[in-house]
Design a protein around this nucleic acid. Structure first.
Length: 549
DNA sequence: GTCAGGTGCGCG
DNA sequence: AAAGCGCGCACCTGAC
């Protein structure tokens, strides 16, 4: 069954509905201060799926009030998927534009998710900001019914049902991970910054070490006023010093030998640390020993999550030692090993690839069957096939891969050909690429090959990256369910594409590790009917994040 | 002063 | 080394 949550003139309506979205009984009308208890009661006594226009408008406040729920249906996230889904095209379903999910851009300009704004609304648990033109309860019920109908009449109802459930569970899990936060020791981070940059200085000033490097660069390049942050100035200075580079990228710089190169590379690295993950970053994003990024569910076209603020998906290895478990706790860091090529093999029903990879390092297995045991060649070939490499070593090796694993390679080649023709492609569970935009339509009209080939590389990768995201979301959702059912104190605290971090009391570590692996096996079985050895996860039990892999 | 686009680099 | 996919963010730059 479903329970729909809707705002109604300062109050909140809870409306139960059956599995087709048809209302059962009268709506319950609650004042905001009654909502937490009512939700907790229903959650404890019924097996229902909570229906939100957008979970992100409600659930963070529920969490702050101590209320959690097991299952959800997010109409905005689901509508976006169904609106594009080729498998559901026959239903004619089109999402209500008022339900459009947030994107990373929508959050631009908002400051760090401090709790002051949250506090304003805590008193009124149901009164989310904005939303004058939000759909009414009746409209939301109609939207739910339309979505369920689009799924039921689709080509693969079971798959779309899984996809929407996983996406909606992700919305709950993302809010919960923000609420829990990644344990992060500001003192360790600060000590590291001081060690490599020098004492803290006000924002906008160069710390001692950077200032010193600028002096060295100005001297060795003979450019007394050089600002190395300006690519134009830097490029001119390099040319004057006889260093013939086309760009100022570190990879190109590293190929030259000149006294200025080493200090320049060091400057770039430290400057990056200061601006991306320095003291300003810590002030903005680390509070009370936790790093709390905003997860934006499904914000990447492929279905991957994005984050807004804090660059959470790019925490450099350099500072991961500061992500440190509380006393009496461990971090359990789990990583799905070589997820994308495994997903490709499973989707393509390429039994040779599955057999080569089963229960072991995938690239080693592939290397044995077609690359004379040379793992690095197997890896380059596999990545080249998934990304659409045409030149160099990768371009040469892909055909070799195709001889041993024809089905897997044929799947990505077919996706590329469809993309080049401007046709949509879909993931395993049925997320489809968006409709062709003006740029692609123009390229199709005038036969602009470079643009069409680029789009083919996008669709080629979309089917793999998107299906891998579905596997990862199923893993996350199943693990979350297990931890709830076992009433664990362990918390999911961080997620990045194919990797999970949990904060776990010492006495739960062994049990939680087992559940992490069991959830991966469940995801493999659910999505592909595959066995646990087909999707192995590596698990590290550590005090700090840097100790994992 | 604001804004969009480019560059560069971190992550998977 | 980079290549071939997907991102977010800081900074610079030129246009207004």
């Amino acid at each position: 069954m479903y329970t729909l949550v809707a705002r109604d003139a300062g109050a909140v309506l809870l409306q139960d509905a059956d599995d087709a979205g048809v209302p059962t009984g009268a709506a319950e009308r609650l004042q905001p201060d009654e909502l937490a208890a009512a939700v907790a009661h229903r959650e404890a006594t019924l097996s229902t799926r909570w229906v939100f226009a957008r979970a992100t408008d409600w659930y963070p406040r529920w969490l702050r009030a101590g209320v959690t729920v097991a299952r959800a249906h997010d109409l905005g996230l689901s509508g976006r998927i169904l609106g594009h889904a080729q498998d559901a095209a026959a239903s004619g379903y089109a999402p209500d534009p008022r339900l459009a999910p947030r994107t990373v851009d929508d959050l631009d300009g908002e400051t760090a998710p401090d709790e002051s704004q949250a506090a304003l609304f805590d008193a009124a648990l149901g009164a989310a900001p904005a939303g004058e033109q939000d759909p009414s309860a009746e409209e939301l019920i109609a939207e739910l019914a339309a979505q369920l109908d689009a799924v039921a009449t689709s080509e693969h109802p079971g798959r779309l049902r899984l996809l929407l459930a996983a996406e909606s569970a992700g919305a709950l899990a993302g809010a919960e991970m923000h609420h829990a936060g990644l344990p992060f020791r500001a003192d360790l981070h600060d000590a590291y910054l001081q060690r490599v940059l020098g004492p803290r200085v006000p924002h906008g000033q160069r710390p001692q070490k950077l200032q010193q490097l600028v002096g060295v660069l100005q001297e060795t390049l003979g450019a007394p006023t050089l600002n190395p942050d300006s690519p134009q100035e830097l490029l001119r200075a390099l040319h004057r010093a006889g260093i013939d580079v086309a760009t100022t990228r570190k990879g190109e710089l590293a190929r030259h030998s000149h006294p200025a190169i080493a200090p320049l590379l060091e400057y770039k690295q430290l400057s990056r640390l200061l601006t991306a993950n320095g003291w300003a970053w810590q002030d903005a994003w680390v509070r009370d020993g936790r790093f709390r990024p905003d997860y934006v569910i499904g914000a990447v076209v492929t279905g991957r999550w994005a984050t807004s603020g804090g660059g959470a998906l790019q925490i450099p290895h350099q500072i991961r030692a500061a992500a440190h478990a509380d006393p009496g706790h461990k971090l359990v860091v789990a990583d799905a090993a070589q997820l994308e090529p495994r997903v490709l093999g499973a989707m393509a029903v390429d039994d040779a690839l599955a057999a080569a990879a089963r229960g072991r390092d995938l690239y080693a297995g592939v290397a044995e069957r077609g690359f004379g045991g040379e793992r690095s060649a197997a890896k380059v070939a596999m990545l080249g096939a998934m990304y659409g490499a045409t030149t160099g070593e990768a371009g040469r090796l892909v055909p070799q891969l195709a001889r041993s694993f024809p089905r897997a390679v044929a799947l990505v080649e077919a996706a590329a050909r469809l993309g080049e023709a401007g046709r949509p492609v879909s993931t395993h569970l049925g997320r489809s690429t968006p409709q062709a935009g003006p740029r692609l339509r123009a390229a199709l009209a005038r036969g602009d090959q470079p643009v069409l080939r680029a789009h083919g590389r996008f669709t080629r990768n979309f089917v793999v990256q998107g299906s891998a995201a579905e596997w990862a979301m199923s893993w996350l959702a199943d693990l979350r369910r297990r931890l709830r059912e076992q009433r664990r104190a362990a918390r999911l605290v961080f997620f990045v594409h194919d990797e999970l971090v949990l904060h776990v009391p010492d006495d739960e570590v062994d049990a939680v590790v087992a559940e992490v692996k069991a959830a991966a096996a469940a995801a493999a079985a659910l999505l592909f009917g595959a066995g646990p050895d087909d999707f192995p996860v590596t698990v590290a039990v550590v005090d700090s994040y840097d100790q994992a892999k």
